[in-house]
Write a protein that binds this DNA or RNA. Structure first.
Lengths: 216, 216
DNA sequence: GTACATTTCAAACAAGTGTTTTAATTTAGT
DNA sequence: ACTAAATTAAAACACTTGTTTGAAATGTAC
């Protein structure tokens, strides 16, 4: 028989509700009601709502981040000059493979990421730097190699501009998909959005220094 | 004597707390406590928390949006070909003039905008289209004129990518400033961030169509 | 099958929220 | 100065939140 444990039923319901309504606006009662388990089960199995949120994210991060780290290392060790588009494209495959973790896993994870950054402002940024700082450093190094003319501080700002693009786009994903479908008769999956994002981000990050941006 | 009314005391306290903690995470008790007025004053003067939020935003929007509309119209009527950077730069002056509305008005408003889009997802987008749709249309038209090779749907996506950049950057403004100060010894005001944003956004929006972005 | 540990369940708890109520106070008009 | 309207004040209300409790149920090992 295909028995899904109480923990998994909670995780599945939680990630769906978290992705579409955000962490703060999702109550434990909504989650346990959708998962068809008792309210107290969350605190029994996960300790607290905060730890439940972390568990939901970890289910994806524990798959994604080592995968990314490996790709980054590989690209760093290859001696050829990597252009920015190639560096950014490294994300595509590992992200799409999250669909194996869970049905609609890629979209789910990216929406969760968006929610995580917009809902609980400082927390997720700290969590990332703390747990995956080494991996992030490799990525920043790759970007710096691809953009040798940009000072580190400029790259810092532009990478955070890019983070904003990704996070906001993913958090608003549902609304944007609906508008695009209504106004342009086009139905893009999350994969389509990713492929639209890469050239946009690459052009923004690699944009030449201007007088006005240097003056401040 | 310089008497500030109860309404103004509430608005001043509210916008500060909203900007730094978000709308959902700011309680009326925090606001009335900081404003040194009675809790019931909010509902008496503004009706509800929701209407208070709108009032806080309107104080800036009623100044900014007509100003932007005027600039857009002027640029549309001038027959010369406008490049994208010029179109985006139109925002600079009207935004910086918000400092006249209030001390640190520009930073405050942009942070509020960021909070508004990330906190109450769908709501602010609807509000904008409903109240300032005409003005936004003029802006989109200007962008389309500056990027005649891009299909409308592509411009739609890229403008929302850009909205994400702005909104996220402004919502995270405080954290980013702190990191930049610590890691790069650089202290940029909000004006510096704006001047850093423009070339990044212009490059992203105007980036050439690629095979991978068209395929999906 | 008895004993023990694990898990489920309904109920209550404590704390926080926005809003309403009703009375006291201040302000303004005549 | 008196009256009526506008404002302030303290308290309570109704509701939701995450969490805890203690008893019932279930599963597991010997």
């Amino acid at each position: 028989m295909n028995k899904t444990t109480t923990q998994d039923k909670i995780l599945d319901a939680a990630e769906q509700l978290f992705a579409s309504s955000g962490f703060a606006d999702t109550s434990l009662r909504q989650i346990t009601s959708m998962a068809q388990v008792n309210l107290a089960a969350v605190n029994y199995h996960f300790g607290s709502k905060k730890e439940l949120i972390q568990s939901v994210l970890q289910r994806y991060l524990s798959v994604l981040m080592p995968r990314l780290d490996q790709e980054f290392s590989q690209l760093l060790s290859s001696q050829k000059q990597n252009d920015l588009t190639a560096v950014l494209s490294v994300f595509i495959k590992p992200l799409l493979e999250l669909n194996k973790v869970q049905h609609h896993g890629t979209r789910m994870f990216l929406q969760l990421l968006g929610r995580g950054y917009t809902d609980v402002q400082g927390h997720l940024r700290w969590f990332f730097n703390h747990h995956y700082g080494r991996t992030l450093d490799k990525f920043v190094l790759l970007v710096q190699q691809a953009c040798p003319d940009l000072p580190a501080s400029e790259i810092f700002w532009r990478l955070h501009f890019s983070l904003g693009t990704v996070v906001f786009t993913m958090a608003s994903n549902q609304a944007l998909q609906e508008i695009a479908a209504a106004d342009f008769n086009e139905n893009v999956e999350i994969e389509g959005v990713i492929h639209r994002l890469i050239p946009y981000l690459a052009a923004g990050i690699a944009s030449p220094l201007t007088l006005s941006s240097q003056a401040h």
